[in-house]
Design a protein around this nucleic acid. Sequence first.
DNA 1: AAACATTAAATGTAAGACATATGAAAATCG
DNA 2: CGATTTTCATATGTCTTACATTTAATGTTT
Lengths: 243, 243
Amino acid sequence: MKIDPDNPADLSAQIAAAIRDAIISGGLIVDERLPSEAELAEQFDVSRPTVREALKRLAAQSLIRTQRGATGGAFVNRLSFEAAQPQQITTSTLLLSMNAVSFETACEARYALERACAPLAATRRTPDHLATMRAEIHRQSQPGLTDEAFCASDVAFHRALVDGAGNPVLSYQLAGAVEAMQPLMNMITFTARDRARIIALHEGIADAIEAQDAAATASALTALEQETQTLAHSVFAARAARR
Amino acid sequence: MKIDPDNPADLSAQIAAAIRDAIISGGLIVDERLPSEAELAEQFDVSRPTVREALKRLAAQSLIRTQRGATGGAFVNRLSFEAAQPQQITTSTLLLSMNAVSFETACEARYALERACAPLAATRRTPDHLATMRAEIHRQSQPGLTDEAFCASDVAFHRALVDGAGNPVLSYQLAGAVEAMQPLMNMITFTARDRARIIALHEGIADAIEAQDAAATASALTALEQETQTLAHSVFAARAARR
DNA sequence: AAACATTAAATGTAAGACATATGAAAATCG
DNA sequence: CGATTTTCATATGTCTTACATTTAATGTTT
């Protein structure tokens, strides 16, 4: 871990990489305290600011946490799914917005992934998940709802579906795909009739999940994907024509 | 974006968050140059090292890149799928190793996600993808192969399958799930008979993809999942008994 | 013995300096 | 005049030193 070529560029990046590798390879255990900044500076033969820049890089990835005071220092973080999700969502969102990913492509990916959760969710969903889904459906049918709030509720509904699979790995991976769609969905204006159709499809999904019918859940999701795609298509076509 | 409460703690984190929000909200465009470190220090009323720590945090997330020299500075990065994948893989790997995720759970998630790609891959796969899959199968059947190389080839095979779906969003999301399994797979020793069974299943998958048969692809994947799970189960049971 | 003050160790921040890379302008030469 | 070289300004990369702040352990006093 003390490797550091005499290439005098990107020292902080090199140090960050060295520490990161040590964490990944198991050389540093969870909750283990790193040497103090001064000690690290001496070990790597650099100044303290350089060490600090390296540590901040690791902190940005939630690989370490720092604590001030007498017994303080930098500690290896237990990377939790909860902590990793916001970052995953941020990255996914930026990937979509910066790479001109079409609504169609993102939507296709999202529903393909959700269908992967369907059989598991149908088997394992708890009453809690069902209650969340029903509550979100109820919220979506309220009249005064803004388009943004409607989309947010849509996301919550789908996350409950995904969480119903009872697999944290799936929930983590899907969080990015589901949440990153929200900005794209927010570009759509939903008429009352649109909302009614979507809510009906949501009810179909909830019913299928409740009945623990995997096949019905999958086909209901496909129907919702179809509806979303055609809706988006018409909205974007109208917007393009208006120009 | 110049908001900064007089809370005198985590200044660099606050500054990083402010710039990050500006990027996400579109206040800073791709390839746009940020103010110089000295200017930022003045704007936020902090010292240059503090600004630098903030910038390093953003660089760790590939949100910005820096360039030295006269026309240098920090530029907003176009976050590409290629750049985001390694980070996604690192995070996924650490999540599995640090949270005592069972082989069963990770394997279930991986194959559920891969089955999501199956219909699309069966439809859209190019000869290139097929060739890669066949080549990896061939490699796996070579005699002198180490277990690690066998697992690496397995990952390459599955990534070709995922990429065959022709959806960059899917490829990105799946990369984490597929690659993160490798350390877990490396804990298994594959006998010659194990390998033969896996290779046969791989051939079944490749055949189904070549025939553009979505249903056959999905069921072949399910068979492979079964095989992997029972294999892992017996290996771990034997290891537990030996103690 | 309990409450309080002191101290030490660590991170957080600041300020100034120098090194280095790099593009552009200026000077020089053919 | 044009091409090449030199110079220079600007920005990041790094080092040094210093001080502020937080926090727990230690010591002291009542």
